[in-house]
Structure formats: C-alpha cells, structure tokens
Design a binder for these strands. Structure first.
Length: 262
DNA sequence: AGTACCACCTGACGGC
DNA sequence: TGCCGTCAGGTGGTAC
C-alpha cells in the first residue's frame, strides 16, 4: 500500500514503538531484502545500539542511530512493519527481525520482496545518492512548478517520478489529477505555471486528507475518487463514470468529462 | 531527454 | 479441483 501517507503512518508507528530501545539481536530471514549489505555487516552495524529518531523522505524511511548514521527502509509494494512486546514464531513473509533488550521485537514483513533495507551515513547522503526529489509535502510551489514543468512527458509519469518529487505513487497520482481536472496524458511541460502551482496545492490537500483518515480510503471526503477507484464507478462529481487507461505502463483511472484528453 | 519493455516476487481472481 | 493468464499500490535496468 505504501505511498507517502502510508509511509508516514509507518514512520509514526516506529517513532512510538522502537525509539530508545537497545537492539540485542538482528535476524535476517531473507537476504533478498538487503540492498548492498550483507546480513553479517548489518548485524554488526546495529548490535547494541538504539534508534534515536524515525524520519521519512517521500516513500523512504530512516531510523537514525546514536552517532552512527541510519538504517534505511523502503516498503516496496507490500512491505509492512510491526512491533510486538513478545516474540512469537515468524509469520509468512517475515524478512527481518530486530529484537530489543527489553523483550520487544520489530518485524519487517514483505510478501513480494520489493522492499529494501540498508544503511547509510545520513538521510541527506542517501537522498543525494538516490537522486530523490524534494518530499511531496515539503516542496515549494516554485520548485514544484519548475521541476514538473521541465519534463516533456505525461504529467502522471512526471509526478510519479521519485527524482522529480518524492512520495507520489500510482493511486495518489490519479486522485491528484482528478482533483486538478488534468488528464494524465497531458505533457507536464504543457501545463501552465498557474495550473502546476494549483496542482502542488492539491498534492498537499490529497496527501493530508489521506493522513487524516489514517489512509482508510472509505473514510475520505465525498468527492475523492479513491473512495471507489474502479472502471465504471460513478464520478465523484457526478459527471459520468470512471474509465481506466494505461499511462507510462501504469493503470490510470480518470473521469473522461472532468479530465478531457489532450 | 523521452519511450517501451523486462525484471524482481508472490498471491488473488476469473475463465475454462 | 486444477491449470492458465492477468493483474497488483514499487523501483531499476536495458535497448531504442
């Protein structure tokens, strides 16, 4: 599920559960989720330390360590984190376990193994190294207009490009473009600056609305297409029915009346 | 600077 | 019940 709002919830969850606990065991159940690190190196890196802060940039999570860089986590498509006071038998698709000295345990579970765990000297370094764009909730209007407007490709593809702006995925891009009344295939370079400025405000509105309802789409305000994002579903503005199309290899949902094709 | 396609991996769902 | 194709919200690589 994870796009920016889901990852932000995970960040808050980590903040509430793992900060200040001393790591007493690192168990890698599947090396496939480690990115550029061996299980032994990861174990050495984390052992006997504790996390001091949980941070996020776009869809990327960072658990900072006392004086020693940070653990980086990406949830991929199916990744999730859970903390429990007592450790039980590993569940299906559990990939990494961190035990804490006080008995608690953090589990990283990821069915499809598109998630990634690594470590880095700092959040800043990691963002630079991966060439991630500004966070979708932090980006200024001016920056958004300039970055999105400078690409000659479908606007949906552009706003989902993590190098342009970090945090927007397939689902939220549909909602943003629906709210902005812009067809996903419109070239982002052809949207006027005013339109892009408005779009960046809509990005905030949409992501914050989702956060407010704890990413439970059924609780989103009326007028949000994510409440029922499916072909044939009624347009939330009552302008017809939603249709699907493929843009940049991803399935997009639009209201053909609200979002006229270019 | 774009695109299209493939890959990673697992499971759910519909048709036969 | 089983087999098969298709699809899924992520990213990254390659070839054009």
């Amino acid at each position: 599920m994870p796009e920016l709002p889901e990852v932000e919830l995970a960040r808050r969850y980590l903040e509430d559960h793992v900060l200040g606990r001393r790591i007493s065991r690192v168990k890698v159940l599947d090396e496939g989720i480690l990115e550029g690190v061996g299980p032994e190196a990861l174990r050495e890196y984390l052992m006997n330390l504790s996390f001091t802060a949980a941070k996020r940039h776009g869809k990327q999570l960072f658990l900072e360590l006392e004086e020693r860089g940070c653990l980086t986590l990406h949830l991929g498509m199916t990744g999730g984190l859970s903390f429990s006071a007592e450790d039980g038998p590993p569940a299906k698709h559990d990939r990494l376990l961190l035990d804490f000295e006080d008995g608690g345990q953090l589990v990283f579970n990821d069915q499809r193994k598109f998630g990634a765990i690594s470590y880095s000297p700092s959040k800043r370094r990691y963002i630079m190294q991966k060439h991630l764009g500004p966070d979708a909730l932090m980006i200024s209007r001016r920056d958004f207009v300039e970055r999105v407007g400078s690409h000659d490709r479908a606007v949906k593809t552009t706003i989902m490009d993590q190098h342009v702006v970090a945090g927007i995925g397939n689902l939220y891009s549909d909602e943003i473009l629906f709210q902005a009344r812009v067809h996903p295939m419109v070239l982002s370079s052809s949207v006027r600056s005013r339109g892009l400025g408005r779009m960046r405000d809509i990005v905030r509105t949409v992501l914050q609305a989702s956060l407010q309802v704890g990413t439970d789409f059924s609780q989103l305000p009326r007028g949000f297409m994510l409440r029922d994002r499916s072909a044939g579903a009624p347009c939330p503005r009552r302008n017809g029915r939603l249709e699907s199309l493929v843009v940049g290899g991803r399935t997009a949902f639009i209201c053909p009346s609200c979002q006229p094709s270019p």
